[in-house]
Design a protein around this nucleic acid. Structure first.
Length: 477
RNA sequence: GGGGCCGUAGCUCAGCUGGCAGAGCAGGGGACUUUUAAUCCUCGGGUCGCGGGUUCGAUCCCCGCCGGCCCCA
């Protein structure tokens, strides 16, 4: 091609019409074998080629996966041009063709080319289009996955629709979207290990955020009373089908709301996102099981549902020793750091109840010691006003009646400091500036955290690595 | 952290009891003016993940490492 002076990567080609527009305009309009005199210029990636001698066929695909056939005949483009086409054009190339819109004798809508040009030459062959790419190849080379697998393109577009639905819903409730620091001098808002980096200008250690919570609450103190952020968070922990080292969350805070307010908001938000994303609240998983996100959702009490399941009364007074014996029935190596009342109760509950909740279910009223940012329950002793939302056996969202009392908040931080001293690397750090903000008085508020990647999974039935366009993979070599 | 399965051509995969490395698609050459994963003839294509060991001989058996997936904690 270069020897003939053909440019393999031209600056542009004279496209007049997209493939989708041609399909839309002529789809129902032409009989098999019927020709128009309408000349269009189209471009797309060559995904199939068929060559019958003096007539060649190429199927072009656009970015959304729409396809259109191009026909090149010796009579129309000339023998020399057709020879060059056969020699130069491979699967995977971007091709431009200008010609009349016709329908072939076999009924395929086509462009009958009078002129063609390579719009961009592919140097690597396309994978087989009729077999699934291996899971590893999909994730490592998502750009190839997107070319060959319609589902990959659909997920990327569905994610965009869901995010827009989330924003639309919150804007409809007068929420303000803000952006808070990713780079933080002190991390907080969740119990997790952070990524650490170094700020050269101040010669200090800084952290990537594990959650935006403490900054969003500062915003509420300042008067942004309905505030949300769609936040990329970083947690330096295990990687599996439900955990990614970086993930996207929605956090939302509503002054004068509580955890009940946030439950209604969460249900409506997820239902709106499902309808906008897939047109239905019914979800079918790969193995055929179904669940419905529509209607009202079940609510459980954490202690009551656990007690019922194991046939024994568990309360906030149940001793650590007794809980440990119950956990050791299925986990024979409990980390000493995890041997607190709250952590053991939560592990028991997840094992016996949470892992089996497929239909959307709110579980309410958690142990106090594992929820240092949540207010104590207004009437039940020993628990906090917090719920977790479970769908498909995993935690999708959590919400609190937020703790706004700066004196109690300081005590909670001090209890966390004791855990740090005992070696708990996930315990929360005391944040003096956050406490100072609270001392200026934060209005009573409900707060919500929701995993966007898991929301995509709950709506589509896919794993987290399918819902993230470019998940982190260990480099080769 | 423990267990299981997997890694062979650009892609998807075969490869028997250890004996010269295989197919389909993709790619090169040829035939064919209405194909739909076109068809037909033909050719090229390999660090069998990496490193050791056993053996006359290892893609195959053993050990270690790297990478992936699944299950368990």
């Amino acid at each position: 091609m270069l020897a003939r002076g053909v440019e393999p990567y031209p600056v542009g080609v004279p496209v007049t019409t997209t493939i989708a527009e041609v399909r839309e305009q002529y789809e129902g309009a032409l009989e098999a074998g019927e020709e128009t005199q309408d000349v269009v210029g189209v471009a797309g990636r060559v995904v199939f080629q068929r060559n019958t001698g003096r007539l060649c066929f190429a199927t072009l695909q656009d970015g959304a996966g729409e396809r259109l056939q191009v026909m090149l005949s010796e009579g129309e483009v000339g023998a020399e041009s057709l020879e060059h086409f056969k020699h130069d054009v491979d699967l995977g190339d971007h091709l431009f063709a200008r010609g009349r819109v016709i329908r072939s004798r076999r009924g395929e809508l086509s462009i009958f080319a009078e002129e063609w040009q390579i719009a961009s030459k592919a140097l690597r062959p396309l994978p087989v289009l009729h077999k699934d790419l291996s899971e590893e190849a999909r994730v490592r080379q998502r750009y190839v996955d997107l070319i060959v697998r319609p589902e990959a393109r659909d997920v990327a577009r569905l994610r965009a629709r869901v995010l827009r639905a989330v924003r639309d819903y919150l804007h409809g409730r007068d929420y303000v979207e803000v952006e808070t620091p990713v780079l933080q001098a002190l991390y907080g808002g969740a119990t997790a290990r952070p990524f650490t980096t170094h700020l050269n200008a101040f010669d200090m250690e800084v952290f990537l955020r594990i959650a935006p919570e403490l900054f969003l609450k500062r915003a509420v103190v300042g008067g942004i009373e309905r505030v949300f952020e769609i936040s990329r968070n970083f947690r330096n922990e295990g990687v599996d089908s439900t955990h990614s080292p970086e993930f996207t969350s929605l956090e939302a805070y509503e002054a004068y709301g509580d955890y009940d307010t946030m439950a209604t908001l969460t249900r409506e938000l997820i239902q709106a996102a499902a309808l906008e994303g897939t047109g239905s609240t019914l979800v079918t998983l790969a193995d055929g099981t179904e669940y419905d996100l529509g209607g009202e959702w079940t609510t459980l009490s954490l202690y009551e549902s656990l007690s019922e399941k194991i046939g024994e009364e568990i309360t906030p007074e149940t001793s650590v020793e007794h809980l440990l014996r119950l956990v050791e029935k299925f986990d024979d190596d409990v980390d000493p750091i995890r041997q607190t009342h709250g952590k053991l109760v939560e592990e028991l509950w997840e094992h016996h109840v949470g892992d089996h909740l497929w239909e959307p279910t709110f579980v309410r009223d958690f142990p106090l010691d594992t929820s240092p940012l949540t207010r104590a329950h207004r009437s039940k002793p020993g628990v906090v006003e917090k719920w977790d939302l479970y769908i498909r056996g995993t935690e999708l969202a959590t919400a609190y009646s937020e703790l706004v009392d700066p004196v109690v908040q300081r005590e909670r931080f001090e209890a966390q400091a004791a855990l740090i001293a005992a070696g708990d690397v996930e315990a929360m750090r005391l944040d003096e500036d956050f406490l100072t903000a609270m001392e200026y008085a934060m209005p009573p508020a409900g707060g919500l955290g929701l995993g966007i990647d898991r929301l995509l999974g709950a709506i589509t039935g896919l794993g987290i690595r399918e819902t993230i366009l470019f998940p982190f993979v260990r480099p080769l070599g």
